[in-house]
Amino acid sequence: MSRAHLAVAGLAAALLAVAPLFLNAYQVDVLNSIGLYALLALSLNLILGEAGLFNMGHAAFYAMGAYTAAILNTRYQIPILWTLPASGAVAGAFALLVARPVVHLRGDYLMIVTIGVGEIVRIALVNDVFGITGGANGIFGIGRPKLLGFTIRQPQEFFYLIWGFVAVTIFLFLRLKRSRFGRALNYLREDVVAAEGSGINTDYYKLAAFGLGAAWAGMAGTLFAAKMTIISPESFSFWESVVLFMIVILGGAGSIAGVLLASFLVVGLPELFRELAGARMLVFGLVMMVMMVFRPQGLLPARERF
C-alpha cells in the first residue's frame, strides 16, 4: 500500500470515527447499517472476491448466525456478545456441510445451488423448524449487548461496536490477503486447473474460504440481532444475498477498499434519495448491466497479482 493510499485510508477512518459527534441519531443509524453491510460484504468478498466462488446465498449464513445468537440469548440467557463464537461456528459449520458436496461445481451452477440453499434456509425459518425459530414472526426480546459492564443502547454506541468490528475485520482480512492462504485463494480464482497443478489442494482452500466467510457472516448476524433486538426470516431474503453480491462486484472483487466504498454507495445512497426509494432496485439493475459493459472490474479493482 503506497503512502497516498495510507493517507486516504487514515483520513477516511478519522472522519468516520468522529462522525457520530456531528450526526443525528437517524444518520448514525444509517452508518450502522452501512457498517453491517460492509461486514457482510467483506465476508462474502473472501468467498466471491478472493476465491472466485459464486455464492448467492450468503444471507443463509448471516441468518444462521443471527438465529444462533437470538436463540442462545433468549432461551439460555447467554449475553449476546458472548454468543459471537457460537454464531460464527454454527454458520461456518453449516457452510462446510452444504458446500462440501457442491464446491467443485462450475461457477454458475454453484451460484444456483447457493440460491437454493438460501431459499431452503429461509423457508425452514418461516416454518419454525425444530420449533425454535419462531416461524414468520421470528424471535423478539433479544438482550442489549454489554461490554465491560456498559450496556450498549444508543445508535452512537452501536456505531462504535459495529465499526470497531469492521476495523478489526479489515485488519485481519488484509493480513489474510497477503498470506500464503490469501495467495492460494487468488490462484483458485484465476485458474483452478493451474492452481491444482501447482500443488494447491483446491477443494481444501475452496472449503476454507466458504467456512471462514460464512463464519464471519454469522458473527455479523449476532451484531444484527443485538442491534435490532428482533429478527425474522424476512431480513434474510434472497434480495439480501443479491445486494451483498452486488456490493462485492460493484466495488471490485477482491478489493477491500472497493467493497467498503460500494457498501456506502449501495446502502447509503438510497437513504439520501428516499423519495426515489421505489426505483432503487431498478437503478441497481441498470447499474449492474452498464458496469459489466464499461467497468467489469469494479469501481476500485484489486491490484493485479500475477
Binding site: L282, F284, G285, M288, M291, M292, V293, P296
Partner: peptide, 19 residues
C-alpha cells in the same frame, strides 16, 4: 467477456425488468 460478467448482467436485467 468472462462468464461472471454475463451472469451479473443477466441478474441486473432481471432486477431491472422486475422493478
Amino acid at each position: 467477456s468472462p462468464r461472471l460478467s454475463a451472469v451479473v448482467s443477466a441478474l441486473g436485467a432481471s432486477i431491472f425488468l422486475q422493478n
